[in-house]
Design a binder for these strands. Sequence first.
RNA 1: GGGUGAUUAGCUCAGUUGGCUAGAGCACUUCUCUUACAAAGAAGGGGUCACUGGUUCGAGUCCAGUAUCACCCACCA
Length: 877
Amino acid sequence: MKELPKIYEPQKIENEIYARWEKSGYFNPDNIDSKETYCNILPPPNANGELHIGHASGYTVMDIFGRWARMNGKKTLLLPGKDHAGIQTQVVFEKKLQAEKGLSRQEIGREDFYKKTYAFCIDRADYMRSQEKKIGISADWSREKFTLDPDVLKTALETFVKMHEDGLIYKGKRIINWCPRCGTALSDVEVLHKETPGKLYFIKYPIENSTDFITVATTRPETMLGDTAVAVNPKDKRYSKLVGKNIILPLQNTIIPIIADKRIDLSFGTGAVKITPSHDPLDWEIGKDHKLEEIQIIDEKALITELGGKYAGLTVHEAREEIIKDLEKLNLLEKIEEMTHSVSICERCKTIIEPLTSNQWFINVDAKNFSLKKKAIEAIKKNEIEIFPNNFQKILIDWFDNMRDWCISRQIWWGPQFPVWYCTNSQLTTHNSQPKCSEPIISIEKIDSCPHCGGAVVQDENTFDTWFTSSQWAYTTLKSKEKDFEMFYPTNTMVMGRDLLFFWSSRMIMMSLYTTGKIPFKNLFFTGLVLDKDGHKFSKSRGNGIDPLTVIEKFGADALRMSLIMDSAPGQNSRLYEEKIETFRNFANKLWNISRYCLSQENFKLVEEISKEDINSEADRWITDSLNELIGKTNQLFESKQISVAADLLKTFTWNSFADGYIETQKIEKNDKVLGYVLDKLLKLWHPFIPFVTEHIWTLAGEKELLMISKWPAYEESKQAKTSSYFPFVLSLNKTIRNVRKEKNIESAKKIELWVETASASSEKVILENADFIKKSAGVSVIKFNEILIGGFIQRVVGECIIKIPLVGLIDVELERTKAEKEIANLEKFITGSSTRLGNKEFVSKAPEQVISQQKETLAKKQAELAELKKHLASLK
RNA sequence: GGGUGAUUAGCUCAGUUGGCUAGAGCACUUCUCUUACAAAGAAGGGGUCACUGGUUCGAGUCCAGUAUCACCCACCA
C-alpha cells in the first residue's frame, strides 16, 4: 500500500473524480436498469453571469437527494438547464454592449441584438456548466436544456396557442406596471414596494354652480390632469348630498362627476378621492365600473402627454412642482402634510413604476372553463404536492386567492416574440368587408403573408415574460423526448429558493395542471436564503459575496456542500462564513484519516456483509449495532427530507463512536473485518453529502465499481439487538481511569490496581469480559470486585459502579473533596426532583409504565452513588 | 393593514408525534506533537431554552397573549 498524505487535498482529486463519474455514463438514467425512477428538473440559472452561493446551496440539496435515489437503485435523472432571463439579460447585455462597443441596442437593431445576446448566453452557459460540475452535481448533461432551445420553445408556444383557443388569453388595454427605464410592462410580482417619505397634498376642487369646494388628498397631484371623477364612500354622510353633482377640474377646466364607491376609505385624508383611471390601479377598476373616461396624461417615458395641456413634455416631477405653484396661485391648495407611503419600484432597476393603461397580453387566471388558480389551490389543498416546509402551503394558497390576471407581454427584445401576426390590410379594410383580416393570426411557424387576403403581415412586437417559459419548465424539458416525459413526469422533487415561491412555484403548478393535467412535481422543497456572517444578503454593492469557486479551491467542494446544508431547516435562512466551511473541511480530513488508518491495517478491505461469526467482542457488537441503528435513522430522515439532521447524526457517529470509540479500542483488539464493514457503510451513507472524498477513499480501498452506484445500506431489524450495548460504559470506565492517571501524572509504564464496587451483575460481567482490553488500554494490573479497600485511594463513579484506585501518597485531599462535594450537590438536586415526581400520585397513575420504572431505576442508582460519595467524602479528612 | 419566521451557551445553530440532570460546532481555560489525524487528542468552564399566563402528572417542545428582530404580501389615494 502506497503512503497516503496526512492531509486530504481535494484540489488534487476532485476534477479527476468528476471526470470518472461523467465518463461512467451513470449520470444518464438510460444506463441504469430499473423500473423505479427519480427525477428532479434543476432550476435553470439565468444564463447571463455566473453561479453564486445561492445556486450552490440549491444544487447541493438536489444532488444529495439525487445521489441518494441513484444509490437506491432508481433510474435517476437530474436535468440541468439555463434560462434566457428576459429583462435581466437584456439589461446586462445592453450594459456590456455600451461598455465594450459604445453601442445601444437601437443602433444595432432588434435582429442583430437578439443574435448577439443569444451568443452571449450560450457562452455564459458554457462557463456556468463548468461551475456546476465543480460543485459535484450528478446531472445528465446530455439532456441539458436552454429555455430558447427550439424544441423547448415550441412546446411552450403551443401552450400559448392552446390557451388562446381556450379563451384563457386576451389582449387588452388595462392598467399595468410600467418601468420607464426598462421601457416595458411588468407583472405584479416584478414590482417591489418601498416605504418612502412623501407629501400628501390637499387640493380644493370647485363644485359646479356653487361656491363650495370638495377637498381631495393625493400624493401625486400631477395626475389630476387625468382625473375623470371624484369618488366618496356611499356611507360617508359628509358627502352624501354632493354625490351626483359635478366639479370643475382645476387647470384642465373640465367637468367631472362626483361618484360613490364602496372601495373608498372614509378615514383616509378627506374621504374624497380624485379618480385617475389611466394612472392608478384602483382608480382604473373604479373607472371601469363607473364607465369613466381614461385620459392618459403620462407617457411611457414618464413625461406628461399632449393631453396634459401646458404641462406637456415635463417630467412627472417637474409637472408636480408646476402644478402645486399654479394651484397655490389659484388658492386651491388647502394644505400639505408629511407622510410615508409605499412607492412601487422596478425589481430589476429600482426605477419608480408608473402605472398606466396599455395594450398588453394577459392570461386570465380565473377563467370559467379552466380556472388556473382554482385548480392550483385544489391540488395543493388535496396535498398532491408535499411542500417543505409545510407552512408555505398556506402562504401559497393565500397568494393564489388574491392573484390577478397575469400580464405576459414585455416590450423588450430579448426573449421569444409572440407568435401573433397582423395583416397590414386589416386597418384599411372595414370589419364587414374582410372580417378575417382584422383578426390576429396565431401561428408558431413564421408567416409571410395573410392567409385570407395574401397581404403583408407584421409580427406582434411583444416578447414573452420570462416566467411564461419558465413556468412550463417541468414538462418542456422532458417533452423533447416523449419517452422521458412518460417515464419521469410528474417529477419527484423540485428544489428552489424561497424567493421563488410566487414567481415560479405557483406558476409552474398552474401551467402544468393546465397543459398536462398533472402536477409538475410531488415534492416541493424550499431552501432559505444564504446570508453572510452578520445575517445580511450577499450583494455586489455590499461587497460581501462569497464565490463558490474560490471556496472550492480553498476548502474543497465537499466542505462547501456540507456548510451549505448543515444547521438549516427547509425554508429557513442560514449563514455562511469561512470558519464554518473550515469545520467541514476539517471533517473531510478526519474521514480521510480514519480511512488512512483503516487502509494501513494488513489485509484491510471494505466488507459488504458480515456474519455473527465475525463479531468477536463487545466493542464489535456495539459498533455494528449502533451502525445498524444509524442506518435506520438516516433512512427515516432522508424520507422526511431532514438531510441536515441526518448529516449531523452521521457526523457524531463517525467522529465520536467510530473514530474515538471503536478505532481506539480496536487498536488493542483488532478486528479488520468489522472495521472494513463499518467503513464500507459509512462511505455509502456519506456519499450523497460529500461525494468526492468518499469516492476517492472507495477507490483507494481497491473497489473497482464506483461508489456512486453502490447499494445504499438498508436497516436490518433482525440484526438489531434488543438491549443496548454496555460498551459505552467500558469506554467511559477506560476514560475515567486514564483521566485519573493523567491528573496524578502517573507514567504510562506504571500499572495501577482497579477496585470495583457494584451491585450490578451485568456491569461486573461486562468488565470481566473486557478485562483484557481495560488492562491494556488503561494500564491496569488487576481488577477486584466488591472487596474492602483501606487506605488512600481515588474514587470515581462510572455508570453503576464505584471505582477505587489505590494511590497511596498521591492524593490531593482538597481537590478530591471539592470534586466529591460538587458531585454530591448535583446528585442531591436530581434526587430531590426525582423523588418529588415519584411521590406525586398523579404522576404515578398517569405516566406510562416505562417512564415510571425508568425514573425509579435511575433514582435508586443515584441514591446508591450518593451514599458511596458521602462515605468517600467522610474518609477524606 | 394582513401574513410568516426567528428569539436555546460569548458567536452560529440543532433539538418532528411533550418524558431521565437541554445538545453540537466555533470561541475560551488547562494539558498533550502517544506512529490515522495539531485541519488532532484529552479534560474543563459557560444556558432561569425572550417574557407572561394556560393545558398537562410532566412543556425548549402544545395553546393564548406580550416584546424585540427579520422577511413577505397589499389598490393607505
